[in-house]
Design a protein around this nucleic acid. Structure first.
Lengths: 223, 223
DNA sequence: AAGGCGCATTGAGAAAAATCAATTTTGACT
DNA sequence: AGTCAAAATTGATTTTTCTCAATGCGCCTT
């Protein structure tokens, strides 16, 4: 575990030997890694668990911009901005590595490999953000939720029962819906036996049916 | 004009002298720079004009993922993916510089400055995508449109009458709304004398009022 | 100047989603 | 096991948005 590569193909030891300060951190549900506006001192790699990136609107409404899974990076916006752009909140028991941003900065100037790795992750983030925009802009609630559940499942391959630490408000904040609407649709999915839920775990019983919903639009033009 | 820096602080001549193939391109409304799935051979910098990045869903619905203005880069996803992720379509008469991706790749390995510049632009793209997610996820149609118009205006500082080459369907595809709904809201804005429109040009008469709409949520709780 | 075409607008009705207000379920703690 | 608080569900209603269909307008061509 300790010797697995955590960033840019380097493991903890190698990073440390390059002068990087790396700290293992264990977090649990609700922990705040940083808040929007905090001065950005650290970046993180998520080794296990799940984290949400949250932004809030002036009127208090919260939106989950991105959900992070094993292997994802966060806090790297600190490489440009002096402050974090969103809050990072831990959803499930997680293990992270904390990297000093200033040192990472220096390291990336010396090692093109690191620079390259960062750019690649950024690219992935952009990719996933663009997909999210598609979902929000073009699909209805039912389809968004179906897509989301299937995507969530992809992060836990060959696992019948998936860890599912998201509350209804979390789902709503990610999918741009009201809590109640999410709740209704989830209830529907259960009634149709597409999914099953219990104590923070989710089982997808009919991926096929969800996939159909996910791809379909308002009206059912079968041409 | 020709000697202005176009990328990573380098101007056309400097890039050429570094072995980069740079081509000036003039486009007009409707031109397709590349389509989704095209093998990615070039990246572009947009010198003047406007370009839309479009993705389409299986069911044919189109979404505008991002709108590009003077100074923006596009096509850089080709540095990771072999193919373009979306279509790039010119909205208004535009001038672009076309860069060879393979050479750019090589250049970026040699010059950290270039690598750094690319990462920075990526970061900006991510930033704007995340803002867009906020808009789509948390605001209603009226507010989205108001925000959008104000943002558009920011790209043309100290200009009373803004170039506005977007059709109603374009606006709808960007804001995740139906064409008709956009049309209604625009008509409303005109009736309230918030804006004025004519032949592809837009004038914002009451930025203050738009700003209020932009920040407000469904119900009007004045506390 | 007349005709026609594409785009924008408007209207009416239906569908989707939000809101408000209970009620039920769940899970934690004693 | 029993109580309590938080979270989820459900129901009723309103608001928002979409859809479908018709109409209007501007611009280009002839």
């Amino acid at each position: 575990m300790r010797d697995r590569s955590i960033f840019a193909g380097l493991n903890t030891e190698e990073l440390r030997s390059l002068g990087m300060e790396v700290q293992d951190i264990a977090c649990h549900q609700g922990d705040v890694l940083y808040r929007k506006g905090d001065s950005a001192r650290h970046a993180y790699t998520l080794r296990t668990g799940a984290v949400k990136l949250v932004k809030s609107l002036e009127n208090g409404r919260e939106v989950i911009i991105r959900l992070l899974h094993r292997g994802d990076l966060l806090g790297f916006e600190g490489m440009q901005d002096a402050q974090h752009r969103h809050a990072a909140i831990v959803l499930a028991p997680s293990q992270l590595c904390r990297l000093d941003l200033a040192e990472l900065q220096r390291l990336s100037e010396r090692l093109p490999k690191v620079q390259e790795a960062i750019r690649q992750r950024w690219q992935q983030a952009l990719q996933s953000s663009e997909d999210h925009i598609m979902e929000l802009g073009a699909k209805r609630a039912e389809a968004r939720l179906a897509t989301f559940l299937l995507q969530w499942a992809e992060h836990y391959p060959r696992l019948r029962s998936l860890p599912f630490p998201l509350s209804r408000p979390d789902l709503a904040a990610f999918l741009g819906l009201s809590t109640e609407h999410v709740s209704r649709i989830m209830a529907d999915f259960k009634r149709h036996a597409f999914i099953q839920e219990q104590r923070g775990h989710l089982e997808i019983l009919a991926p096929q049916s969800l996939a159909e919903l996910a791809g379909k639009w308002p009206d059912h033009k079968p041409d």
